[in-house]
Design a binder for these strands. Sequence first.
DNA 1: GCATATAGTGCCTAAAAGTATACTGTCGGA
DNA 2: TCCGACAGTATACTTTTAGGCACTATATGC
Lengths: 130, 130
Amino acid sequence: MNKDKNYDEVPGCTMYAALNLISGKWKGMILYHLLKGTLRFNALKRELGDCSQRLLIKQLRELEEDGLVVRQVFAVIPPKVEYSISEEGRTLAPILLGLRDWGHGWLTRRNLVARDDHLATDDRAISSAG
Amino acid sequence: MNKDKNYDEVPGCTMYAALNLISGKWKGMILYHLLKGTLRFNALKRELGDCSQRLLIKQLRELEEDGLVVRQVFAVIPPKVEYSISEEGRTLAPILLGLRDWGHGWLTRRNLVARDDHLATDDRAISSAG
DNA sequence: GCATATAGTGCCTAAAAGTATACTGTCGGA
DNA sequence: TCCGACAGTATACTTTTAGGCACTATATGC
């Protein structure tokens, strides 16, 4: 989505644009974690676990460019950078949460156990509509 | 999502699984078009326009494997194959439609014109909850 | 007889996405 | 004094994703 900014030339549909915004191996997950609160770079990295540093940076930059994530740099040493979800990003919350719940149902119906650390515990922390 | 079927080993969250199910350049779009009704292979291809035949087949196979799309082969000549959304797939409708509407808002707020052939016209044809 | 439509498959290549590793500079702690 | 934490960057590399073209088989239309 970030490479070619011809969002108006996407093949026919805002679906395509929206999908591209949250595709990319970790973007949905990043957004989802940030819904729960601001995180520093390494804290986010730890949450994600398997995401390489380089990729995480790239995805965060793209999310920032697309106005979904806010990056705040503190001029201190050692460096401190905080990532949080933007107002725009927060409007995605109902969809993200819906997708997560749907995924849970899907995994269950397919008899694939959902090892879901978040489903039951974290919802109170997420204001679903901003 | 289809390569390694260890859905229970996804990094921590059903979000990841759900996201992967509808990622892949055309999957969301395929699902979205099939929400409006059954389509034959070439009809779907025409709807999508820019999607290569080879890729479309691949994505359809994956969606079928994941139980979101139903493929029905008619033993006639020339061949006839119909693709439709499954019951399971239809449960994704509210999320897909939500995503599309959110994308529309996002494009608008960013002053990027949404060339959206579907937004206003097709909703009646889509039963949002199955 | 030839082109076209149907729904694909197979092989090869290009581009995008993602990984691994080493490196930056400064502070605080052992 | 050396190490680790912090938030990255740079370079080289592998893997995955996607695109292009040729080909299958048969019926219909011209």
